[in-house]
Design a protein around this nucleic acid. Structure first.
Lengths: 199, 199
DNA sequence: CAACTTATGGCACCGAGCGCCACAAGGGAA
DNA sequence: TTCCCTTGTGGCGCTCGGTGCCATAAGTTG
């Protein structure tokens, strides 16, 4: 098919999204996010500072990779869930699927998430990305429940799913050996014991 | 006692924290957060731009008021909770207390929270403030459970408490007539039905 | 009046981000 | 080949948030 060469008219890009991201992540990791200027990223990528901002809308967005495309995948997974499954279980399975990492990419993902969750500037920016993630969950929940997306329950489902995922990720960063999927299960189990607790 | 005049040495401040915040919020509300420059805030407050940054560490912090002091209050409320109360109920009561608003201040609080929750820049920045709020909850939960603060359960308790509070606030902004306390109750009830759901 | 303290203002500077425009580098049609 | 069209890049200048530094204003105490 060679569908990847649809004609190619005009000047070819000097590099690509992933290459710039890789160079930037390397700098972030070695020198810190704040200490890395966009000029340094440009130099490391062999492009100009101006062009860096054509690949990424902001410096904060660089560590997020192809998050938006992953959201489409999350939505697809949810749609493909057997409707007989209880809502909370459908959501939990989708979250597990969304956060499944190839064995070879674990180390890189750990670097990425350490930056995102422990760098204040990125921690702040992530709130905007999480909103999109929650919206996908909330829309599915709303459809399942026959409610508007802005009703209480779909909102709670979205927020709580995120709460559990973030709890699991924080534990994951603390513990070199833990598996993310186990921690996601553990977070949900923890919530159940918390609410059923009589102590 | 006249304890408010402990001696007062040196030049008197030209204004105060609350006055600057009030002037800034007015500008934010009328022209939008992004369209309001720190210079405009300085002009409206009768001080220089440089001095604005002595009252607030950043423009993003202005709408938050005296949040840190409120956190101390939240911690105190939690400590004062009868230990016989189930953990989830203690947390829920503390959250209710934390978000109790004087009848006269409701309109202003609505403005403040609308800005915070619907302005992207502030939505991002709020993640940093929420972290402090969650930490207070998590520390209390950890103490009650005899676990380290970074264990799974305290983290989940903090994150889930925030998830419910944010769900309630979003509904509150959508609904002019709703009472925040009722929405907080509703959020918690929603979570219970979600997890116990068999549909 | 002098000494000390606290708050302010102004200035220079840095870095992120954007608008604008010239130009580079490719393809296709004449 | 030559001209046109398209896409990508580089550079310039500007705005705005934020900070360090220092002079100075405005108080109190002696």
């Amino acid at each position: 098919m060679t569908a990847n060469e649809p004609v190619r008219i005009g000047r070819r890009p000097a590099t690509d999204h992933d290459s710039v991201a890789a160079a930037a992540l390397d700098l972030f990791w070695r020198h810190g996010f704040d200490a890395t200027t966009t000029q340094a990223i440009a130099d490391a990528s062999g492009i100009s500072r101006r062009t860096v901002f054509r690949y990424f809308p902001s410096k904060d967005d660089i560590p997020w990779g192809r998050f938006d495309e992953n959201l489409d995948h999350l939505a697809a997974v949810l749609r493909a869930t057997p409707p007989g499954l209880p809502l909370h279980e459908a959501v939990h399975r989708a979250v597990l699927d969304f956060n499944r990492i190839d064995a070879g990419a674990v180390a890189q993902h750990r670097v990425r998430m350490t930056l995102i969750l422990r760098t204040p500037a990125l921690q702040a920016h992530s709130a905007l990305r999480y909103a999109g993630w929650r919206a996908v969950i909330a829309e599915y929940a709303a459809a399942r429940l026959g409610l508007p997306v802005d009703a209480m329950l779909p909102r709670v489902v979205g927020h709580v799913a995120l709460a559990l995922a973030l709890s699991a990720y924080e534990r994951w960063l603390d513990d070199e050996d833990a598996a993310l999927a186990d921690l996601l299960d553990e977070a949900l189990a923890g919530l159940r014991t918390y609410l059923g607790d009589r102590s």
